[in-house]
Design a protein around this nucleic acid. Structure first.
Length: 432
RNA sequence: GGAGGGGUGGCAGAGCGGUUGAAUGCGGCGGUCUCGAAAACCGUUUCACCGUUUAUAGCGGUGACCAGGGUUCGAAUCCCUGCCCCUCCGCCA
């Protein structure tokens, strides 16, 4: 959520930012609601002040035994009641409207976020490795996986619906190996690991920005709990409503959770394979830090995501999302894209964002530092995938495929696979 | 699921209809004393919003004692609903 005062004082800049984002923005509506809200508050508070002084008079008069005078004052206050109720209702109404407007308004892109219309305008920042070359015709993971007996798409559909998958045998084992490898790697680099609820309430979902605008993207239970679309929701909200101490910052957190996405509106996109499914695993990184450091922390977090791909030996590139493509809560985002032979291109496998104080203001995560400033300030929040496990598996299957259809296990995963070095078709698994 | 008890400031813990934003203790901060420290003593110690203002200083106002309603001239104090916690019983991976 943007700061009301910031919006009030920078209306042109906000309008321009929202244009660059292709986000709806009604500056006149904001100005009207903002003005109405403040005058409504003034009306209500003036009435409250009057009521309070008169009520105190009643108390004093009663003590002095002047009952008649007390009764007279009581009557005057009682007369204020309707007026006060009306003023309160007006304030409530306009306040709710303004709040809703702000809750649905995306973050201001940082100055370093390139201006652009769509994903076609995202500049490449760097590349690592070169696209894998084959001296045979490579297959897609959605063909290789079922052939190896490690991915079963039909049974996913049978058990749940389309866009759900089943992993069997070494597929399930590989999933677990990847999760452990990623979590171990991040914790070794200073991220504290958490285990979290995969459901979250409305307030939590509002804190990180999923609600109120993106309700349709999530699965919801009858109890008004939502299945989390990412562990970012829970990791970031861990400190919601808290005032931290500067010496406790930065916080570097990570967690493995399943993630659930409705994928409404993406019908027809990435319909094959593990790329876009309703349920997938992800190891997530989240940071809370002081504003001065947040952009350095973003670079470091992106490097931590890249580190996983480097250790797995998967070619990738990093792009900087432009204003037209950046997410709702983010001020700046780097996407890490892994080389995927079946797409003959790079595909997003991690998204690392600095949300500055946008989420912190929604959640109320502040900090104090008596040495450098008075009062409290909002922390900056960052999140990044480290990495999406299903897409990583797809990338491994495709990039490590052998001419015979088997999959070489990346060296760093072999210990996590119980020493298995190659995944062969069911029945001919080496060492099994 | 059944039966009770409870949610007050950083913590402990009073208040149970009227100058109570809240006693007292601990903790924190500043000071006196001291060569220095401890002890003792004095002072101070929540946050949000609105207005004023160059000001995130000061001043004025409003709200906040789990949350939301209600009663009342007036509510931390009374009533209702919800959430959470504790104890006992039952059930359970």
């Amino acid at each position: 959520m943007l700061d009301v005062r910031f919006v009030r004082e920078n209306q042109d800049a906000v309008a321009e930012a929202m244009r660059n984002r292709h986000a709806e923005w009604d500056g006149e509506l904001f100005a009207r609601l903002d003005g109405e809200r403040r005058s409504a508050i003034q009306r209500e508070e003036a009435l409250q002040a009057e009521r309070n002084t008169l009520s105190k008079q009643v108390g004093t008069l009663m003590k002095e035994g002047k009952r008649d005078e007390a009764e007279a004052v009581k009557a005057r206050v009682a007369a204020l009641k309707d007026e006060l109720a009306e003023a309160a209702a007006q304030r409530d109404a306009v306040d709710a409207q303004l709040r809703d407007l702000l809750l649905r308004t995306p973050n201001m892109p940082d100055a370093s976020t390139p201006v652009g219309d769509s994903e076609d305008d995202n500049p490449e920042v760097r590349r690592w490795g070169t696209p894998t070359e084959f001296d045979f015709e490579p297959q897609a993971h959605w063909d290789l996986g079922p052939a190896l007996g490690i991915i079963d798409f039909e049974r996913g559909v049978k058990l749940a619906s389309s866009r759900f998958v089943v992993l069997g045998g070494l597929g399930a084992r590989l999933e677990r190996a990847l999760i452990n490898f990623m979590a171990d790697t991040h914790t070794a680099r200073g991220y504290k690991e958490w285990w979290l609820p995969v459901m979250a309430n409305t307030e939590t979902m509002t804190g990180t920005g999923q609600l109120p605008k993106f309700e349709d993207d999530m699965f919801k239970t009858r109890e008004d709990l939502y299945l989390i679309p990412t562990a970012e929701v829970q990791l970031t909200n861990l400190h919601a409503g808290e005032t931290l101490s500067a010496e406790d910052l930065p916080k570097h957190y990570c967690a493995f959770t399943p993630c659930f996405r409705e994928e409404a509106g993406s019908a027809g996109r990435d319909t094959r394979g593990l790329i876009r499914v309703h349920q997938f695993d992800k190891v997530e990184m989240v940071k809370l830090c002081e504003p001065e450091n947040s952009f350095d922390e973003l670079e470091a977090m992106t490097a931590d995501a890249e580190n996983i791909l480097q250790q797995l030996g998967l070619p990738y590139r990093v792009i900087s999302l432009c204003t037209g493509d950046i997410g709702f809560s983010a001020a700046k985002t780097y996407d890490v894209e892994v080389w995927l032979p079946s797409y003959n291109g790079y595909k997003e496998i991690s998204s690392c964002s600095n949300c500055v104080d946008f989420q912190a203001r929604r959640m109320g995560i502040r900090y104090k530092d008596p040495d450098s400033f008075k009062g409290t300030r909002y922390v900056h929040t960052l999140n990044g995938s480290g990495l999406a496990v299903g897409r990583t598996m797809a990338a491994i299957i495709e990039n490590y495929q052998q001419p015979d259809g088997s999959i070489k296990v990346p060296d760093v995963l072999v210990p996590y696979m119980g020493g298995i070095e190659v995944i062969r078709p069911e029945g001919s698994v080496a060492g099994a």
